[in-house]
Amino acid sequence: MNIFRLAGDMTHLLSILVLLLKIYATKSCSGVSRKTQELYAIVFLARYLDLFTDFISVYNTFMKIVFIASSLAIVWCIRVHPMVKRSYDKDLDTFRHYLLVAASFLLALFLHEKFTFLEIFWAFSIYLEAVAILPQLVLLQRSGNVDNLTGQYVFFLGAYRGLYILNWIYRYLTEPRFTRWIACVSGVVQTALYADFFYYYFISWKNNSKLKLPA
């Protein structure tokens, strides 16, 4: 474990806590893409299939459970909780996210570390996570002004994988034979997808103005 990875995991946890706070405090999921939340639930379920078979550390197991439980809880909230469900705008959240699932799985069948069930689902989860934010970014562009908590949620979610890139550079420099090409390349693509969001987020922070993504 290194400071970059710990900071990355904590930023990821923070993004989830901010989203939970937004939904709990406002009893609304306006501006939140249900499809992105569903994709993230699939990402965690597919990535942590080894939750009960491979024990790495208490921290690792604890965080995996937190990520799985929180992502399922958020999807449940948006789909079932009557107050929150009412605020979900399905006419804005129209990205065909099942195409992202199909494409990621197809890619995982060809590009993986080992042709085993666990490794193919792990690669699938890596590819899917890289594109999981797309429905959310599209929704933000459509829904005009973005409330602060939703903006912070997307910012921290994008920042965590950026910190993981620093972690991979650090491990590459300090550990012999450290290579994680699938996670690295996918992580760079994932972080690059936030580039324009980061730009507008920085502008809104500098001008102390409302975050606005151009349509």
Partner: peptide
Amino acid sequence: GRDARSKDEL
């Protein structure tokens, strides 16, 4: 199980 070291990240 798989080589635990290869998947020690979240």
